[in-house]
Design a protein around this nucleic acid. Structure first.
Lengths: 212, 212
DNA sequence: TCTTTTTTTGACCAATCGGTCAAGTCAAGA
DNA sequence: TCTTGACTTGACCGATTGGTCAAAAAAAGA
């Protein structure tokens, strides 16, 4: 049998595709092994448990996301707001392409999926997903900090804004999955734009005011 | 054995708690039956499958959410923006209370959880979650329509804005789950406020502009 | 070459999975 | 009183679950 990569890499690759598509619980170790062309014993030679393979898989997907979206979009040589434009374009294009070709359907956010599924049951996995969200927010925060410094957007708590953008993006990807329509991701940029304009930062909408 | 409600209701109630906490795949029919004090045979007398029970459970949770959050918050006698204030308060208070008492941890959005887990594998469940999201968006859309009519917020595509608010709220609840911190939900109102101010609705941020 | 370590093989395990079923209980209607 | 049909019981099913293991094969130093 041709071995394109090592056994370990093939297992991670198979898990990546299967778990992203069907989730953690719905994918068995047997199925992953079969897809990777690996025997069960070899699996447990490289990974002590299904959970460990899942952690490695989360890392692998994040590496793909970082090199595919975050690094090219948040290029320091670009205007900070243009970086957000690029991010919105890249992620939407990717989901649109995949959901209409490779995938049978829109699969949403791989981190959000596993986070929502095993979030409160598996400590290690939850921490790993959290680390990914932290890393995502860091990219946004840096861009927003620069944008504030050059007065492209108003002064604001950039950490809060960055977190809100990540949560918004995650929520939109989940909607895209539930509606099986990657078009939902198109809502990211307009909503994000208004969030970072930050005209309002209180805890209550004032009902008396009239116009914006 | 004391029967507070019918067997069917007890099964739905048990499934509600267990699935909200641990997810669809992680909760077995046996466990639900044990928690409800019901035999397996009785389960399959009332429900043809685990999937059917899940559908009924989604409906039951939505009834709770609607009567607990949406109906009281989106009271037509309130100013439309005040309704959004109330919604933000009610949902945050609820999650904060539950995650620090009844629950062992913040559990996120029950619909988002099941939607993310079985979204692309189970047609019927995905449709049901979609229906819930539609219903949620309808409440927001109605309030926004009124707010625009009374010039409390600028004219805008209220359907789009409503969808964005629902996705934002979902995403924040997922973050709350992953970070095990219901405080994330506090980000809803400020972010939502800026979204419905709708100063921007294009597909790209203009990098040349200076101040907001 | 010989030894040591890494990797692979595939049978095997107890436990659990969703679901079935024949037998029985029970209250209400005739 | 007899019948009917909704409901309950708990044993049972084959399939699958995550995980183990002893032995063989392959690869890597020496």
């Amino acid at each position: 049998m041709a071995r394109m990569h090592g056994t370990k890499e093939r297992l991670i690759d198979a898990a990546m595709h299967l778990m992203w598509a069907d989730g953690y619980g719905a994918v068995s170790v047997d199925r992953i092994c079969k897809a990777a062309g690996v025997n069960k014993g070899s699996f447990y030679h490289f990974f002590p448990s299904k959970e460990a393979l899942t952690l490695a898989t989360i890392d692998a997907i994040w590496e793909l996301a970082e090199s595919g979206f975050y690094m090219p979009a948040f290029d320091p040589s670009l205007h900070p707001l243009e970086r957000i434009n690029r991010f919105a374009e890249l992620t939407h294009t990717y989901h649109h392409r995949r959901s209409t070709s490779d995938w049978k359907a829109e699969q949403g956010c791989p981190f959000g999926n596993v986070g929502a599924e095993v979030g409160s049951n598996d400590h290690a996995i939850r921490e790993r997903v959290r680390a990914v969200y932290d890393a995502e927010a860091r990219y946004f925060k840096n861009a927003l900090t620069e944008a504030v410094a050059m007065a492209a957007i108003p002064a604001q708590d950039v950490a809060d804004s960055a977190s809100r953008l990540v949560a918004l993006h995650t929520g939109l990807m989940m909607h895209a999955k539930v509606y099986n329509d990657s078009g939902w991701i198109h809502n990211f940029l307009p909503a994000a734009a208004n969030i970072i304009r930050a005209r309002f930062d209180g805890r209550r909408l004032a009902v008396s005011e009239a116009r914006a």
